[in-house]
Design a protein around this nucleic acid. Structure first.
Lengths: 276, 276
DNA sequence: CACTGTGTTCGGATGTACCGAACGACGTTG
DNA sequence: CAACGTCGTTCGGTACATCCGAACACAGTG
């Protein structure tokens, strides 16, 4: 009765209490750093206090939550730090990309990030801030909008039209600013342009005043493994410099492809791009 | 029948499926980076394949796991990166300590780390490697032995004798090397020595050939908030330099105490140490 | 003292989480 | 080719764990 058709359809294979426990973790993560009280959590979770207590206690004994007394407040546990660190080390992309990101940040004086392709979404897993640049609030691991970010569009541009349509149908084309692309036709032509340019741009489509340029890289299996992007203030970037910046990002992405043992964009474009 | 008295005694308030799901995450985390197959997981978890599938699917839809096809293998999901990043940012200690760690690493040319005090255990949440030093495999978020690490002993030294006895009784004094302190009496006198010195040492007690020095710092509430430690190869460190190194680490910890608005060790020692 | 807010305990009915068995595919072995 | 070993997936049925609601102890506030 809570979600009629919100979650997955194949709900046969989902464990209710576990799904609730994960939502509980997310609620705590969204809350303030001091943690939240049990009653608050119960209200937000839509469960009784006793149920919430049992879930929280179980999660706490696994280290996922941390009950900081007095007045038991639950905050995120240290096990998550460990698991996050392990996850990053299991995706060696971060370590591989860091030198490339550092050089890119130095060259462009912009914040450089690398995203992996996770179920249609770009997920940023490593970041190198530009020298003296404004610090953007870009938490690691956050899913970004595929249609409204440079990295997302760079990744989408490597997929077939049917896949792009499926992803967009699944998650929608929500407007983030007045310049966000919200119809599939415009998006597809923007992707075509990105394909021929070798890089994608986000011109205030995700946040006002913010400009991004992204380029995809490829793994040893030939598929798109992720994308690199740089982020900056639009007014700092003259329009005639966009192409030059795009080529710089494109080269950085090619370096990553090389490190991964994959094709560079140009060759990938020749071998796989034709059949799209 | 699996654990007769292994887990907590108050098992009334623990949700079985959630506890199992958390164990599943740990199993995946311990496994190889390529992920593990469903049958493997089911065997190791001690549950049927269908149950494991339901748990894994639920965790995957929450982003905690990631099913990388083909041959569905489960690895850790990107949500853990995000949650770990949020957890670290909610404990601002890492950001506060980083400059101090950097200076300490530069001064001592050793790997410097900061640990928080979590239920009797030291948990390292940030690390700065020394210049050109050997990279130690020290994953973030890992609990270390309280009795066999410099940071652990530095923290224990700030507690009362009864608390130390309780912690040791709870978790044991396992021998990690031939030099590990394994009886409570020796440990207590080592802690007394650390108390008067202002720093604690780990002389090959956790790993052969490794030498550590640690010192505790204090938060605004006057209690021990954590410890800073440096790690190096024992043969690189002449015996007569230990005291100098200890004072250096002690000073770094005092700086952290100051940043946290807490007492420095000397003053803390005067106000609280007497009643121990 | 009544009243609202905590966190905690407990019993009992509902429903779900769990198992086991069976199925279709794939690869290897005789 | 048949037999066998895996693998992941589906489904039905029931024991039992989960969840709720009510009641408790306690703290702060009018």
């Amino acid at each position: 009765m809570a979600e009629p058709a919100d979650e997955d359809v194949a709900d046969r294979y989902t464990v209710r209490s576990v799904a609730r426990a994960m939502r509980l973790i997310e609620i705590v993560a969204d809350g303030p750093a001091e943690g939240r009280s049990l009653s608050e959590l119960a209200r937000e979770l839509g469960a009784s206090k006793s149920t919430t207590l049992a879930l929280a206690r179980t999660l706490a004994s696994a280290g996922m939550l941390r009950d900081s007394r007095p007045g038991p407040r639950y905050s995120l546990g240290t096990a998550l730090i460990r698991l996050g660190d392990i996850t990053k080390s299991q995706l060696p992309l971060g370590d591989i990309c860091r030198p490339v990101l550092s050089r890119l940040a130095e060259l462009t004086k912009m914040t450089s990030r690398v995203a992996i392709y996770d179920q249609g979404y770009p997920v940023f897993i490593e970041r190198v801030d530009g020298p003296g640049s404004v610090r953007f609030h870009t938490p690691l691991g956050q899913r970004e909008e595929p249609h409204a970010s440079a990295a997302g569009k760079a990744i989408l541009a490597t997929l077939g039209e049917d896949q792009v349509r499926a992803i967009c149908a699944d998650h929608g084309l929500a407007a983030r600013t007045s310049r966000t692309i919200t119809d599939i036709g415009s998006l597809l032509s923007a992707l075509a342009a990105a394909r021929s340019d070798g890089f994608a741009v986000d011109d205030e489509e995700d946040a006002e005043g913010i400009f991004c340029v992204g380029a995809a890289f490829f793994g040893h299996d030939g598929g798109c493994a992720g994308a690199i992007s740089v982020t900056g203030i639009k007014s700092d970037l003259p329009a005639w410099k966009v192409n030059e910046l795009g080529r710089t990002v494109r080269r950085a992405a090619d370096q990553v492809s090389e490190l991964l043992g994959g094709d560079r964009y140009s060759t990938w474009n020749l071998t796989a791009g034709a059949l799209a």
